[in-house]
Design a protein around this nucleic acid. Sequence first.
RNA 1: GCGCCCGUAGCUCAGUGGAUAGAGCGUCUGCCUCCGGAGCAGAAGGUCGGGGGUUCGAAUCCCUUCGGGCGCACCA
Length: 555
Amino acid sequence: MTPDQLSGALSAALASAVADGALALPADAVPGSVHVERPRQREHGDWATNVALQLAKKAGTTPRALAEELARRLEAADGVKSVEVAGPGFLNITLDAGAAGELARTVVTAGAAYGRGDALAGQVHNLEFISANPTGPLHIGHTRWAALGDALARIMRAAGADVTAEYYINDAGAQMDRFGGSVLARARGTEVPEGGYRGEYVKELAAQVLEARPDLLDLPEEEALVVAREEGYRLQLAEIRAVLEGFDVHFDVWFSERALHESGAVEQAVERLREQGHVFDSEGAVWLRTTDFTDDKDRVMIRANGEPTYFAADAAYYLSKKDRGFPGKIYLLGADHHGYINRLKAIAACAGDDPETNIEVLIGQLVNVGGARLSKRAGNIIELRDLVEWIGKDAVRYSLARYPADTPLELQGEDMLKQTNDNPVFYVQYAHSRTCAVDRNAADRGVVRTRPDGTDAFDPSLLTHETESVLLGRLTEFPRIVGQAAELREPHRVARYLEALAGDYHKWYAECRVLPYPDEEVTDLHGTRLWLNDAVRQVLANGLDLLGVSAPERM
RNA sequence: GCGCCCGUAGCUCAGUGGAUAGAGCGUCUGCCUCCGGAGCAGAAGGUCGGGGGUUCGAAUCCCUUCGGGCGCACCA
């Protein structure tokens, strides 16, 4: 019995009580669905609900009286073993072992589809994340957005959304020229100009640029600057893409800011917003009246010198997303960009969109690294590729994805390496590989999933052990965890769930043998437990996949 | 000064109004005579930063205060 089915049974109990006149509740106060949850305490049954506490006042009765009424009716439902009224009016529900155990077969049958749902069905989103300048390597801050953003894309898709993952390449503007100047200076072996890029990686880029363009140093100054900039850009972007690929982070679209300028989209954006009535001229500049909406000051789009601002490109970019057919536009930004939220929302509003639904800005806190081992190449930053090299893709992705984005993360440099074996990712992966080990040995021990007569060697009523009841309950939660993680944009919920599931599995493993002792007869209990073992492996694998972490069969 | 985020065990952090606030690490004690010990069982460790309020019920919602991070450009 799934929580949805139980919720339905509760609704039916409510409806029948109202129909009988046993419950004086106005029709519009009868909830369409009743929320059930797993109680923290095992003694409180398999499922609990506080519906009686919430409805008692409206029904003009006491919570306990209402709870008693519902308990009587719910106990008659199929699959429900017992219902107790506890405390101020909680309903504590215990399911029949068979009804609960059937879930194992449900999971195995669903396979990779178990956990996928329709919480976000029909939604179309553009999810933009990382979007680091192509003037240097990705560092640990970008790594957090990479792990989080990619996991979020996977989770939202699992919940039924159509998600396009997009990287905005800030390849226009003055910082590109500074980058080019820095590469050129390194190529010449001279000092990097004031305000330039001083990281060691620039030297490496310069060497590669020289390799590709041996004529660089002979070119006239202006041409040399362009060549250094463009070659450096090409190399750095290729590096970023390769590193992300190795990190299993996939983008559907790499969107160039430069393309917005070159195609005239920026000017067009200004004109389109002018038509909407939100653009005005003042002091020689062209402004967007973002204060009509949520911003605290108006923003310049075209400077007095005729140059468009970064903000103008932002507006053009927003319109591009709109034009490309994305009702939902999600931005995953660092906390140092939180001042952008209001102006981005104002752009949406100026464009005639609804800032509440068409744009969503997720702010992630930065990662602090205390006393960290430093990158050899980039100076005082830690690069994504170094992190992966040091502690591995799975450990990096998992340890960044298991925290909410708005948690300021403090990673102790010394611990970072030491932590590898203690990283919860291994706890989860170990549980998965354990299920595989059991599976590998099952046939040798004569344990099978199907009886000789072709029927399933599966009798859910045999799954009566305490740890089995807990494990089954946990498995039923997975689909709604995925749905919640998708709706709340919180991938860490999946990770935390997997840790709990792995814990439940390890406890079960310690208490209940799947495979018989050598001199023991093979029974349906073994076969049934093999089904449960299969179900756990499937959910662990499905969950790890949502985080972009591998599910190894051996470790 | 204004705004956003965060203060939970020694450390790093979960906990979208429910019952006795949890996990990992660290500390201490047990468990390999059989499915993988990267595991399990147990112990110690808390004024949920402080103070008010709403509620049958608050770590969670509201106000206030203290502490930390970040931001307030015709920069990108």
